[in-house]
Computed example of a mutant assay.
Amino acid sequence: MASSEEIVLNAPHPPTAKAVEAFNVVVHQIKSEIVKSRHHWDKHEPKMWSRVAGLSDAQLVDFTIENDLVEVRSAPTSYGTVILGKIRIPAVNDDEGEGFVHVRIHDPPNRGTEDVLFHSLFTDEGNRDADGRPTTWRAVQTRDVPLEFFNE
């Protein structure tokens, strides 16, 4: 498995047709994982998905890759390509601005995009107190949060 020390991501850029195709292979799983993550975190720490607390599951995942994948980064690995994507959640536009989820997918080598795999969602347990416990939780990012490697 890749780590931030082992890969070199390209610069953030608008999605290419190939990136759109790759994310569309797993869009249903991305949506399912977003809903599953919110339900999981709501049981343990509702602050994680608090920006979308007033949305239904259907509203939360009412996005299309063609319209809402706004930024990507990728890096080659020995076992394929790691691709990060910033996906807009159209129903979120609050006092912090638009809302985005960061998604990591993997495209194994030699088979086109047919075998693209969903890997994970970025759920940020950001600042920590003196005892190492998180003091902030954020699954829905703002536009200015950079799309960086994550290994959740």
Rank of each mutant, 00 (worst) to 15 (best):
I105H: 03
H119E: 15
L84A: 06
R133Y: 12
Q29T: 15
D68N: 15
H44P: 00
R133S: 09
N24D: 09
L147F: 09
P14I: 04
T123A: 10
N67M: 02
S50A: 13
N110F: 07
H102R: 05
S32Q: 13
D124G: 10
M1I: 02
L121S: 05
W137Y: 15
P76A: 12
P109I: 04
S32E: 11
N110K: 08
V140F: 10
E152R: 08
F63P: 05
S56V: 00
I89A: 02
G54I: 00
D144R: 11
K47C: 01
S4N: 05
S50W: 03
T123E: 15
E96Y: 07
I105S: 05
E5S: 07
K47Q: 11
A130V: 11
S50K: 08
P108G: 09
V92D: 00
N93G: 01
F118W: 10
H44Q: 10
V25F: 14
D42E: 14
L60D: 03
K43V: 13
Q59M: 12
T81K: 07
N67H: 10
E6H: 10
D68K: 00
F149W: 15
I83Q: 05
I65A: 09
G132M: 08
D115V: 09
R111S: 08
G112N: 11
E5A: 06
K47S: 06
K36L: 10
A58G: 04
Q59L: 08
G99F: 01
E152N: 11
L60K: 03
G132L: 11
V70Y: 02
D107S: 14
E21M: 05
D94R: 00
V35N: 06
Q29N: 13
H28A: 13
V103K: 09
W49T: 11
T142A: 07
P46A: 11
E45A: 04
G99R: 03
F63L: 05
A17C: 04
D129W: 03
I34A: 03
G97Q: 03
A19S: 14
V27F: 01
P15D: 06
H44L: 09
R128C: 12
F149H: 15
D124Q: 12
H119A: 07
N110R: 13
A91E: 15
K86R: 14
D107E: 12
V25C: 08
P46H: 06
S32M: 12
F122W: 13
F118N: 12
E98T: 01
D57K: 02
G112P: 09
V140A: 14
Q29H: 11
F118T: 07
D57P: 04
I105N: 02
A58H: 14
E66R: 06
A19D: 15
K18N: 13
G54V: 02
L60V: 02
K31C: 07
E114G: 15
I83G: 02
F100K: 01
P15H: 08
R38T: 07
E152L: 12
R51H: 06
S74M: 11
L147H: 10
K36Q: 14
A53P: 00
R73K: 07
D115I: 05
